[in-house]
């Protein structure tokens, strides 16, 4: 942090001003000219909250993707299909048993098992051949998409959260002042989204601790840096590969349940979330968990704020961010090398 400020004083100032302005926009009571300029604060705050919580969801999907890529150099283009599979499994569990919480571990385990299967029977057979692995994941995603369409049809599914998570909660963010009495109006927001976002943060911090503070994390980081050397020191690298693939796939499955609660699950969502994870890791930097978190936050915010303030060009905004990052930092914001 210190060194970044020393190296890039101008950029640091710009970033600092941007963040300060954003915080002011979030916490202050908006003056009249600002409301005239871009509309009511409630709309803006809702967009920010939706963006941040969507960023949490994107982080869950993209962190598995980036972890798998970082360690195995495997661009898993079937990651979106794993997400969708998790969503369907979660829906099935939640609707048959009635326990929403049960959907998470079941989706994690089932999709993780699919990941183990893929790693052992498909990717291990073509290790070190990046292009072929990628092509195989495309084939798998085509097949999985069609099998899921076959099994679940083209309907939209929605996983209902339990009643104690239903409904909105009053937050401490001010949206405006009542004209009659002068009381502050506080924002109401669906509690389930806040809970899920908190869970995403916990998972993210947990992953960071696991990677940076434990023996297994040390193995994985060593593998990211130099896979061959790690294998030469006698570490059982195949076991690490299977474990990481299972964990990454399981996270995608978990995210599927979250996505099914947030939004809907339907054919086509797999591609949407694959695209989101691609953009997130291109922006954040391949193989970096912190990068995935920053990228997910940026993309989630850009998507939601874009769709509120300039609806027809929302996609272009996301895309422009990717182009700018590629132009100035091809390895991504947190990527190494280059």
């Amino acid at each position: 942090m210190r060194s970044f400020i020393d190296r890039r004083p101008v950029w640091s100032l710009i970033i600092f001003c941007g963040v300060a302005f954003l915080l002011w926009m979030i916490f202050s009571v908006w003056p009249a000219w600002l409301i005239d300029l871009i509309g009511r604060k409630k709309v803006f705050l809702n967009a920010v909250f939706n963006g941040v919580t969507l960023g949490g969801l994107y982080f869950l999907v993209a962190s598995g993707f980036t972890l798998i890529f970082g360690l195995m150099r495997n661009v898993n283009l079937a990651h979106g299909s794993l997400y969708l599979l998790g969503g369907y499994v979660g829906y099935w569990v939640a609707s048959t048993t009635g326990f929403w919480l049960l959907a998470f571990p079941v989706a994690f385990i089932v999709v993780g098992a699919v990941g183990v299967f893929l790693q052992i029977f498909v990717f291990r057979r073509m290790e070190g051949d990046d292009l072929r692995q990628t092509l195989v994941t495309i084939g798998i995603s085509i097949i999985m998409a069609d099998l899921m369409l076959w099994a679940f049809g083209g309907d939209f599914y929605n996983i209902n959260p339990p009643s104690w998570l239903g409904g909105p909660v009053e937050t401490f963010f001010v949206t405006g002042v009542k004209r009659s009495s002068g009381d502050l109006i506080f924002m109401k927001y669906p509690i389930v989204r806040l809970v899920i976002f908190a869970a995403a943060v916990v998972i993210g911090v947990g992953m960071w601790l696991l990677l940076n503070r434990t023996q297994i994390g040390m193995l994985i980081r060593a593998g990211v840096d130099d896979r061959d050397m790690l294998a030469a020191t006698g570490a059982r690298i195949q076991l690490v590969f299977v474990g990481v693939f299972a964990f990454g796939a399981g996270l995608a499955g978990l995210a599927g349940v979250v996505g099914g609660t947030f939004q809907t699950i339907a054919p086509g969502e797999d591609i949407r979330f694959l695209l989101a994870s691609l953009v997130v890791v291109i922006v954040g930097g391949m193989g970096s968990i912190t990068g995935a978190a920053i990228g997910a936050l940026i993309i989630g915010l850009a998507e939601q704020i874009g769709s509120v303030y300039f609806p027809t060009y929302a996609v272009v905004l996301t895309f422009l961010i990717m182009v700018v990052v590629l132009a100035f930092r091809p390895q991504g914001l947190m990527g190494r090398g280059g």
Partner: peptide
């Protein structure tokens, strides 16, 4: 600007972005 396997990712992202746009 990037190499090898990244090309697939970037071009796929651009292609999907055009579709949604």
């Amino acid at each position: 600007r990037t190499e090898g396997i990244y090309t697939i990712m970037i071009t796929l992202a651009i292609a999907s972005a055009f579709f949604y746009f």
